Amino acid sequence: MGLMQRVVKPSTARGKKHVINREPKIIENHKQTLFLQGHKTSPTAVQCLKDFYHLKKPDGKMMSRKNDILPFEDATPIEGFSKKNDASMFCFASHNKKRPNNIVLGRMYDHNLLDMFELGIENYKSLSAFPASKFTYGAKPCLIFAGEPFEMNHEYKRLQNIFVDFFQREVVKGIRLQGVEHVLSFTAANERVYLRSYRILLKKSGTRTPRVELEEIGPSVDFVLRRNKLASEELFKLACKRPKALKAKKVQNVKRDAFANKLGRVHVDKMNMEKLQTRKMKGLKKSYADRKKERGDRAVKRAAAAASGTVRTPSGAGVAKKARKA
């Protein structure tokens, strides 16, 4: 018989809360990001790593020590850090002669590496290089993607997906206009990705709708796409699978248009317009001639019924029976 693995249960309320927070959920927690430095780094790569950490706050954790890690050769140490800190994304800074000023963005699925991209830093300006005032701490950025590669190239599509996963925060149902104050713009052109950061300024316009201006606040980076390690289509589809409890039940004859307006189709039987009750108005009353004609028609029907030996009146079948005996 094999030895049974002993399960250690938490004995304190804090430990129980920690275990419950790690359990699988229908609606996941917002994603935590690890920020790590390699064994060899450069001031540019480290400063870019710190700027990304400031953009990601408070959903990020900066590791203080340098780590002898090569993600594209062996991702096991990063997977261990991910499991220990319950983080599903990482940002890694490194530097060497062949690939200077490196930033590696990656994400996990079930604490195993899903995909990652290695980006080279060119023409870098940090947050501190811009004297403009910065955005509010923890604000949700508005992400803008421009460029044909984001629509046509498979690698750039996956890179766009990682950027969205990296910079988005918790999901909210609604947001006010004054809450949108930060813009991150990604432009793909000339085999590069240009990252620019702006602050939204709402100025007076003389109307209810304010005049919108953009003020660059940094960081400003030109990224060169170097190496990547992408998950297979099956694994990526499995990682994006939604639980059945979150899937909206399909309602027949109801759909939504491009603006999320609900459109419904109702099936109604053909209506008998002769029995339709309309509003009683003097103009809709029958004329004297029409009423006289209807009385004449009823008299003719009664005479025909009497000639045939059956008289049908509103009193029922008893009257008709007496008419036949007579």
Rank of each mutant, 00 (worst) to 15 (best):
R99G: 01
N102G: 09
E151H: 05
G147F: 03
A132F: 11
A132Y: 06
D68H: 06
K50P: 00
L143A: 02
L113N: 11
I144C: 09
D51P: 00
D86R: 04
L119N: 04
A132K: 14
K134P: 04
L70M: 06
F130I: 04
F150L: 03
L49M: 04
K83Y: 05
F92Y: 15
S128L: 02
G80S: 01
K125P: 00
N153K: 04
I121F: 07
R107A: 00
L49Q: 02
E118I: 03
S88N: 06
I78Y: 12
D68E: 09
I121A: 08
T76M: 05
A93N: 01
F81M: 14
H95Q: 05
S82C: 13
S133G: 15
N153Y: 03
P100M: 08
M89V: 01
T136R: 15
F117A: 12
P131F: 13
K140H: 09
A129C: 03
E118A: 07
S64D: 06
C91G: 01
H54P: 00
D59M: 02
L143Q: 03
M89K: 11
D115R: 01
I69G: 07
L55T: 01
H54L: 06
R65E: 12
A146S: 13
Y53R: 01
H111C: 07
E122Q: 10
V104R: 04
E118L: 11
A146D: 13
H111W: 08
P131Q: 14
A75W: 07
I69V: 15
S128T: 02
S126C: 05
F135W: 15
L113C: 07
N85K: 08
L70G: 02
K98P: 00
N101I: 12
K57M: 08
N67E: 12
T136A: 14
F130C: 05
Y53L: 07
F145Q: 01
R99L: 12
K97Y: 12
G60D: 05
A132E: 15
Y124W: 10
T76G: 02
F92V: 09
F92M: 05
F130E: 04
M116W: 06
M63A: 12
P58Q: 10
Y137N: 14
C142N: 08
K61N: 02
N101H: 14
K57N: 03
T76R: 10
L127Y: 00
G106N: 10
I78G: 10
M152F: 03
E79P: 00
G60F: 09
K98Q: 15
K125R: 14
I144G: 00
I78Q: 11
G60Q: 06
L114G: 06
N67L: 14
M62R: 11
S126G: 04
A75F: 14
D110C: 08
D86A: 08
D74L: 07
V104L: 10
Y137T: 14
K61W: 04
H111K: 11
T76L: 08
S64A: 07
S126H: 04
N96C: 14
R65A: 13
K125E: 11
K125I: 03
E118D: 13
A87Q: 03
F90K: 14
F72Y: 15
F92G: 04
P71Q: 15
S94H: 10
C91Y: 02
N153R: 05
L119V: 10
G60Y: 07
P131L: 15
D74P: 02
P141R: 07
T76Q: 07
I103E: 00
